[in-house]
Design a binder for these strands. Sequence first.
RNA 1: GCUGGCGUAGCUCAGAGGUAGAGCAGGGUCCUCGUAAGACUCAGGCCGCGGGUUCAAUUCCCGCCGCCAGCUCCA
Length: 643
Amino acid sequence: MELRLPGGPAWAGPPGTRVGEVLQALGVTMGSDAVLAGEVGGLTVGLGEALGEGGEREIRPLTFADEGGRDAYRHTASHVLAHAVVRLFPGTILGIGPAISDGFYYDFLRSEVFTPEDLPRIEAEMKAIVAADLPLERMVMGRDEAIRLFELRGERFKVELIRGLEPEVPIILYRQGDFVDLCAGPHLPSTGWLKAFKLLSLAGAYWRGDERREQLQRIYGTAYPDSEGLERHLVRLEEARRRDHRVLGRELELFSLHEEAGAGLAFWHPRGGRLRQIIEDFWRAEHRRRGYEILFTPHIARADLWATSGHLGWYKDSLYSPMDIDGVDYLLKPMNCPFHLLIYKSRTRSYRELPLRWGELGTVYRYERSGVLHGLLRVRGFTQDDAHIFCRPDQLEDELHGIVDLARFMLRSFGFSEFEVALSVRDPANKQKYLGSDEDWDRAEAALESALRRHGLPFRREEGEAVFYAPKIDIKLIDALGRGWQGPTIQVDFNLPERFDVTYTGEDGRPHRPFMIHRTVLGSMERFLACLVEHHAGAFPFWLAPVQAKVLPITTRQLDYAGTVAERLTRSGFRAEVDTRSEKIGYKIRAAQLEKVPYMLVVGDREAAAGTVAVRERQGGDRGAMTLEEFLSLIATQGTPVA
RNA sequence: GCUGGCGUAGCUCAGAGGUAGAGCAGGGUCCUCGUAAGACUCAGGCCGCGGGUUCAAUUCCCGCCGCCAGCUCCA
């Protein structure tokens, strides 16, 4: 058989040769900081794996920079973790232990609970296993034999896993010393290849993610080929903690949550309120510019309406209990769409008036289980930047294109430039479980896809991910730390137009069913604020900053002048405040800096006499004195976003 | 909802079966100062809520509420 490096030399030899030997013969350097695994015929293979039969194929060396190499590395770390745990805590039953995007975990069943104090002990044991440099031996075993082996060891989850495997799938086990695990691999050749790793946290997790099954204890960790990589990861975690919107939200007085009021209900403070108003004003103006109308609808409606919409059925877990009004049940709205449909139906619609683009900053209430609530990211009452578009089939693609364009424009304006786009479409093998005609689905999916292509946006096509009534586009924002945040969602809805029997009169004088697009750009005001806070680490760009300039008098002598300066700025439409405390200038600067105010205007006797301000930037420091007019023209262009 | 952890002043955190302390923040007085913390002083607490054990509970036990890390789900 013959193997060839991509665009490189070839190797020929007998089947059964190990991947590592082939790579070595081809002059590839292997090791923790070099090549960790290989890829043959599109499959990741461990270096210790013997190559099967096959014609001429490509062999690609994988390092930690490749997903395959990284996963092999971390997956091995998870085995070392499990090995250490069964050594320290005999009788522990193993769940599963995969590599994940930032590290690895392993799930364990054990009657006693792990405590944070156990982690260093387990880590120490892991280091011993690494120091012993135990080779990882890959074994293929008969099904019954494997089941017997794990039954003997009391590993009932492994037995369950094996029983669940398709008969033609080979049962692969990996052994390191006295530790054996069911595992498809691949792995590093030996435990000594692991260099830097750390156990990070403990959590509960259900066996196979099913809450009806046993709850296991999960240990999370991460691993890198060098301590610098691990250190960088830990610094990143620290940075994420530093940006936590729950902490910054309190420190910057943006919002609060109150036990007295109930979990998951947000209170917007004056500073947060300013920010929200700026966002909403910008949102409304941009929507009007793009042909949207703004609607306002109630917060409650008769339960019948939610029966018509179908929410009472398939959405009932998210609804709050009805309230009785004059003997009729009313529900708090979980969505705005039925209301917009009522407005649509308030009179007959002509093909001439389509598309209708109707937006609403609509506050909705959805029950969320207590355990999932999280700051402003997951709440029970929130304001969506919702809109519904009713259009003719021939307008669908342009409308979708326009929405994507609006979404990008808005997000760029708020400082986001990186996105991850997913297009969720039908499962082609299972078409009957979806509402709506084949033709409509094809049209909608094609229109969604072409809207993305026209924008040149790279996207992942996810078959079978669409909900039963709508294909959709989901756009994730990537923040300053590379984390993803759910942003715009665009759905073509095949359910509600039918249920509400909405129509328009076509050129032919006959009723036609319009397409209904459901979309949000920011998601919800609450979640978007959280996202903005974390993305900017609380240091909002000038146009969003709740306080744009803080006037800092050197002594109380300049209080009057400082007041004049602030007033002048306020009258020019900026948000300015004076620090009137009797403190030294260093103290006031520090305070303003911690408040993350973009501009500090220091005014002493010199400035008061000359009618100037000494400008200090949040980043960049002292910019020297300038007249108030000069400062106003400096900030004049910063009052609006630059998309 | 489940598992584990946590809940003491606005914030960060000490403390202990005999009913509480620090730093920062806040108020006051003094200082009037030139680019990241001036001095002194005052006030601030149903020790999350309810029940139990005890002579005595904020401390121990139980329940509830809330928060944190996850599981699951979603805007």
